[in-house]
Structure formats: structure tokens, C-alpha cells
Write a protein that binds this DNA or RNA. Structure first.
Lengths: 152, 152
DNA sequence: ACTATTTAGTTGAAGCTTTAACTATCTGGA
DNA sequence: TCCAGATAGTTAAAGCTTCAACTAAATAGT
């Protein structure tokens, strides 16, 4: 039973430390802007943004959780808070009694609009301004490959 | 005052969603393995691993926090827990009365050894097995660039 | 039809992180 | 020398996430 994978070589370690650094620091930077401009976290922003682009601004909780890269439990707690703030509303799915649908409200749309300009500016500043067009495409390909595996 | 950055185009949006997906899902996957194999989070693993590679297995709290990509407050709480478990010890810095030094203990080294094989295997599976050598290098360059900006 | 299993969602408790306030020490000028 | 401000670290409280237990509805197998 020699499953021992060799430890990372120097190039791999450099890549790994860079990736981990981005993975740990990017959310902090995004949260900071969104909290300041629109009293929400990046996860909450993602939830609202996905709803906005959805058919009828409505989505099943579990689909929304998957798309938002979070657990259903996490989404459920967040949806409770968003609902209390009047940014979304939840109601039973007519076709499947187990499901709950979440819909963006007008208040939610307004809150997104408060967040968006500063958010785009920051995303450009942190990511796309640092990369040329080829690098952007290459990062997209690589991230897509890794994400496929992470989603199982 | 037209600071309006244009919203992301399709290619940029693809890249962004991929990057965000990795950023949100990778820590969950790493935490799961480390929690299972060695009762620690990925942040705790990082702290112990950086100590192991440090001169004298010792580091100043604030340097360790920066290297570990976390806030000093976060590290302070984590260090308390690690110290309670006997994985590190803390003591005053002789040359600067404000500073605290953290040192890895034998117990900490043993715990790292429990975590490491499964960790390397998972990192390979999730990242390096998905990429060829060129992509690994390219990801390293890109992540390094982004990280530079994220560190200010 | 009947039951066992799976799927969807919620919730309380525990655990972790952030925020803000606080203490203590050091450094760079008047 | 003295002091104002900067730097290092800790901590309590608030907020967020995970974990595990739970309810309810749908589906599959008999």
C-alpha cells in the first residue's frame, strides 16, 4: 500500500502558495467592499446576483446553493436574513412539495444596484487589470478545469 | 465623475465565475480532509506548516499571520487553541517587548505528519493532476500576480 | 397500495472569524 | 527627555458557518 504521493516540487509549491494566497485573500477583499457599500457579504451578493439573472428572478433553494458555491444549510441561514431584510421572498414550489423557491424583491434589486458599481470596479482592479487578454482566457480555462473537479 | 467601469464581458464573466468557484470550494475540500485526518482546519495546517519551515521552528505572530494569509486577531484565537492542544507554544520576544513568538512543539510536528500524506494526495488530485506542466507554471505566474496586488 | 429510501429544507448548538476596544511597548521628533 | 503616534497582540461580543438532528414530501421496489 504505497499511496505516498511525492511532496510538491519547487515549481508546484510556488504555484500552490500563490493559489492558496488568492483563495484566502480574495474573499476578504470582496467582503470589505460589499460590506461597506451595501451591507452584505460576498456570498449574499452572489445569491442576489444569481437570482437577478434567473428566469422570473426565482430559483429553487438547492439549485441556488449549488450555483452560489455554498451548502444548503448556509444558504438557508442567509436566506432567512435576506428575507428579514426584505431583499428576497420565499414560497413553496407548486410542482414539488419538498422544494422552496426564492425570488428577488424590488428591495433586493435596489440593494444589488448599490453594490454593483463598486464591486465591478474592485473586481477589475484586483483581477482583470493585472492580466492581459491571453492570461484572462488562460485563467478561465484553468479555473474551469479545477472547478469541474471540485464540483465532483 | 464617470468612474463607471464597464460590466464584465462574456469571457471575463466566465473567468470570474470560475475563479470565484475555486476560491469558494477549494477551502471546503481542504478543510474536509484535514478535519478528518488530523482534527484541524486548513488555516491551522498552514500555520503549523509555516512554523515547521521557519528558522528554529519559530516565528513572530504578525509575520506568521501575514504568511498564513489571515488577520492577526484570527491567528491569535487559533494560536490559543493550538497552544491548548500542545501543538505550539508562545513566549515573549527577547528583542521587542511588543512581540510574541510562536514555536512548533514535538506534538505539533507529529500532528502535521498525520495530516501531510492525505493533504498532498488531495492537493495533487484537485489541482496538479488536472493541469499539465505548462498550465501549472502559468497558474503560478497568474496567481503570483494577483496575490501581489491582494497583499497591497 | 405499502414501506424504505432518497431528496429538500430548516433549525439549534457549537465553533470559528471579525470587529472594536483595550493594554503594552516602541519610535521619531520637539 | 518627553510625548504623540505607530506597532504588536489579546480579548469580549457579535455575526456567520458548519454539523447534526429533524420534518416533510417524493420516489423506488415489492
Amino acid at each position: 500500500m504505497n499511496d505516498e504521493a511525492p511532496w510538491l516540487d519547487d515549481d508546484e509549491m510556488t504555484t500552490w502558495l500563490g493559489l492558496i494566497g488568492v483563495v484566502m485573500r480574495l474573499p476578504v477583499a470582496l467582503d470589505e467592499q460589499l460590506r461597506r457599500d451595501a451591507r452584505m457579504s460576498h456570498f449574499e451578493f452572489g445569491v442576489l446576483a444569481h437570482l437577478e439573472h434567473a428566469e422570473d428572478q426565482t430559483m429553487r433553494m438547492s439549485d441556488l446553493a449549488f450555483l452560489s458555491n455554498g451548502s444548503l444549510s448556509r444558504l438557508s441561514h442567509v436566506a432567512k436574513r435576506l428575507e428579514d431584510e426584505g431583499l428576497i421572498e420565499r414560497f413553496a414550489c407548486p410542482s414539488d412539495g419538498r422544494s422552496t423557491l426564492a425570488r428577488l424583491t424590488d428591495g433586493g434589486r435596489r440593494r444589488l444596484a448599490e453594490a454593483a458599481p463598486g464591486h465591478v470596479r474592485l473586481v477589475r482592479e484586483l483581477v482583470f487589470d493585472q492580466l492581459d487578454e491571453g492570461e484572462t482566457a488562460e485563467l478561465g480555462r484553468i479555473a474551469g478545469r479545477l472547478l469541474e473537479r471540485l464540483k465532483q
